[in-house]
Amino acid sequence: MDGQADERRTTRAGGVDRVLVCNPASGSGDHAEEIRARALEREFDVRETETAGDARRLAREAAADGASLVAVAGGDGTVNEVVHGLVDADALEAVDVAVIPTGTANLFARQLGIDDVDRGFDLLDQGRRRRIDVGFADDRPFVNTCLAGISAEANTSTPGELKRRLGPLAYVLTTLRLLPEYDGIPLRVTLEPGVPESETWRGDALLVLIGNAFRLPSVRRRDRPSTEDGLLEVTILEERPDPETLEEGRLSRLLEGDLTPVTRLEVSSLSIEGLEEEPVTFSLDGELVSATALEIDVRERCLSLYVESTTDAGELS
């Protein structure tokens, strides 16, 4: 029996109850030993990825093995793969998920107040879970964002070393560097397709941001957290802003449409269609997908996730 198999903690013959999927190459790439030790203390079966797609496969196998909890140590892309694996296994609503942020930006974890590895394990120990929404682009899940336009381009163009040194700031710097040269992509965006008199936007978009957990600054007050409202926030940046609009302190005015045309709406479904022959590059939680069109919707409160304690209705014991 190999070393990894020796470390497994089983709850019944042929099955495991708690699995941790670890991407040892995420972020600075120096966390694997610590993650493994802390996970084994909590009786997790630790399974490490070696290449792209492994986290999806390991999550699918964990569900098939009978796991009731799958923790994921990695960045946004690894979290996306784990959720995708649970979708593959038709186990999204049956398996709890915990996030141990070890990636470069960890945007999804930060949206949920999980700032570091210690906080991720603390939340596991507290045992508090919430059911959150998951977005779907065709059959592909995303928990944080679906992007098209310049932000998707920035995901492909940001050097790994820059991400390691600067974290989320690396994506911002790359976006600003690309902006003067970026002409946008011709798109048709239909909001609530299939609904009579549904609204359609058509034009050259510099940026399309569809947020599930992630939302841009807004004056709107929410009755429920954005991760549980059954809605996606759609932001379309229609024209290149003047460079001075990107100065510190003016971003909120830009996003509210005061300085350049911006469309901001909240919907439960939409479709995006490229108006040229070449497929459009989309980024789903940082994972790149090429498609000529996508049908996008949200499944409300379908994922049970370990997060901060709360008294809202979405909390599970």
Rank of each mutant, 00 (worst) to 15 (best):
residue 143 V to E: 01
residue 94 A to H: 07
residue 135 G to L: 01
residue 2 D to F: 13
residue 46 V to T: 02
residue 69 L to N: 03
residue 256 E to Y: 13
residue 118 D to F: 09
residue 182 Y to W: 15
residue 314 G to M: 04
residue 8 R to E: 11
residue 223 D to Y: 11
residue 246 L to F: 14
residue 134 V to D: 03
residue 48 E to Q: 10
residue 205 A to F: 01
residue 153 E to T: 06
residue 158 T to Y: 06
residue 215 R to P: 07
residue 268 S to I: 08
residue 86 L to D: 04
residue 13 A to R: 14
residue 252 S to K: 11
residue 92 L to I: 15
residue 50 E to K: 10
residue 119 R to A: 12
residue 50 E to L: 12
residue 304 S to F: 07
residue 165 R to N: 10
residue 184 G to L: 03
residue 85 G to F: 08
residue 84 H to Q: 14
residue 180 P to Q: 12
residue 224 R to G: 10
residue 132 I to N: 02
residue 7 E to D: 11
residue 188 R to Y: 05
residue 40 L to N: 11
residue 221 R to D: 04
residue 304 S to W: 05
residue 97 V to H: 04
residue 4 Q to L: 14
residue 182 Y to T: 10
residue 48 E to N: 08
residue 39 A to S: 12
residue 170 A to V: 07
residue 162 L to S: 11
residue 101 P to D: 02
residue 218 S to F: 13
residue 249 G to I: 08
residue 295 E to F: 07
residue 299 R to Q: 11
residue 314 G to E: 05
residue 240 R to G: 08
residue 257 G to H: 12
residue 302 C to P: 02
residue 271 S to I: 08
residue 203 G to P: 03
residue 49 T to F: 00
residue 62 A to K: 04
residue 147 L to K: 05
residue 245 T to A: 15
residue 103 G to W: 00
residue 268 S to E: 13
residue 68 S to F: 06
residue 134 V to L: 07
residue 91 A to F: 02
residue 284 L to T: 05
residue 106 N to M: 01
residue 38 R to E: 03
residue 215 R to A: 14
residue 290 S to I: 07
residue 20 L to R: 01
residue 216 L to F: 12
residue 252 S to Y: 12
residue 299 R to Y: 04
residue 114 I to Q: 02
residue 165 R to I: 10
residue 165 R to P: 07
residue 166 L to S: 05
residue 73 A to M: 00
residue 60 R to P: 03
residue 193 P to W: 09
residue 178 L to P: 03
residue 20 L to P: 00
residue 301 R to Q: 12
residue 76 D to L: 03
residue 28 S to E: 14
residue 294 L to Q: 01
residue 171 Y to Q: 04
residue 222 R to D: 08
residue 280 V to T: 07
residue 161 E to H: 14
residue 129 R to Y: 11
residue 154 A to S: 15
residue 96 D to W: 09
residue 257 G to N: 14
residue 111 Q to E: 15
residue 116 D to F: 08
residue 194 G to A: 09
residue 80 N to L: 07
residue 141 P to N: 01
residue 58 L to S: 02
residue 132 I to K: 03
residue 267 V to M: 12
residue 101 P to G: 03
residue 164 R to K: 15
residue 175 T to W: 10
residue 85 G to Y: 04
residue 8 R to Y: 13
residue 153 E to A: 15
residue 118 D to Y: 10
residue 214 F to Q: 04
residue 131 R to E: 05
residue 305 L to D: 02
residue 137 A to S: 02
residue 303 L to Y: 02
residue 85 G to M: 09
residue 262 V to A: 09
residue 78 T to L: 08
residue 192 E to C: 04
residue 227 T to D: 01
residue 313 A to S: 15
residue 2 D to E: 15
residue 200 T to C: 13
residue 62 A to F: 05
residue 7 E to L: 15
residue 37 A to P: 08
residue 42 R to F: 08
residue 234 V to C: 06
residue 78 T to F: 05
residue 312 D to S: 14
residue 221 R to W: 03
residue 184 G to S: 06
residue 47 R to H: 12
residue 99 V to D: 02
residue 114 I to G: 00
residue 302 C to H: 04
residue 243 P to T: 14
residue 222 R to A: 06
residue 51 T to C: 08
residue 182 Y to A: 09
residue 104 T to S: 15
residue 24 P to N: 10
residue 300 E to V: 01
residue 217 P to D: 06
residue 103 G to F: 01
residue 297 D to L: 04
residue 7 E to K: 10
residue 171 Y to W: 08
